[in-house]
Amino acid sequence: MSGVPVDPYVVPALDGVAYGLLVFVAAAGLVLCFGVAGILNLAHGTLFAIGGYTAAALLDGGWGSLALALVVGVGAATAAGALVALLLTRVGAAGHLNQALLTFGVALAGGSLLVAAFGPDDPPVRVPAALDGSVVVAGHRYAAYRLVFIVLAAVLAGLLHLAVRRTRAGMLVRAAVDDAEMVATLGVSPAVVRVGVLAAAGALAGAAGVLGAPIIGPGPDTADAVLLLSLVVVVLGGLGSMTGTLLAALAVGQIQTLGVALAPSAAPFLLFAAMAVVLAVRARGLATARRAT
């Protein structure tokens, strides 16, 4: 990189980190659903949109409204996640086709309800007044909210890692992945674990939606866009590995911002190219990913 001036790419690179962390928090919920319950939750993007619309409706420029939006948005998305889980318990054993149909139906109906409630336009989102300005980073002006978001999302990712590795709930979740029947004999109903996981995934999507609303704003297309990004990230990350998902999310963030800045004409192909590169590196294919890291 010696001949290329690094300077103009600082801002896209930082944007890429913010974008990547946002996608990670959203995709983490999908990894949980998928890893534990084996459910492909097509309504995941809609849960994110619930958080985004809540932020747009409640944020008025003060800190109190941010806290309120966070509580309401996470609560609503958690409830929606639990609702999906309850609907799924009746269909649960009947195969992935029915799961896909059901979660897609929830996404379609939920998206329609959101548009009916908040209108068909993309509502503006107001960040807290104290963060509305810009700060100087390495000689460049950069939106203060995005810097704070990077810190917040990193903290959230750290907490998630601790929760999965260290808490009893996290251990139960990992145990349910390894051997659901054994967990059941220990007196914990796998169905309860599953509802809990889907609700937790909803909470993650809701938190990402509220905090990320100034970055990926709410609108009728948000749900599809977030679902696609999360899917690509989960596939790139090795289908179930949290660390892999984080790395993939950061890479996708850079592709979507720095990649577009560096090679605008190639931008449409970059995500495809990333999937091809990952495949070349792991020639055996992703679905046969190794048992343990």
């Binding site: 596939v235 192909f269 495809f272 495949l279």
Partner: peptide, 29 residues
């Protein structure tokens, strides 16, 4: 190479990602 080793839910997920990426590509190319 993406779809060959996959079955079940994993395949649904990968094919959905491929299909959506194709639409994004069609919109941008």
């Amino acid at each position: 190479p993406l779809v060959l080793p996959a079955r079940g839910v994993v395949l649904l997920m990968i094919t959905l990602a491929v299909g959506e990426l194709a639409v994004v590509l069609a919109g941008r190319w």
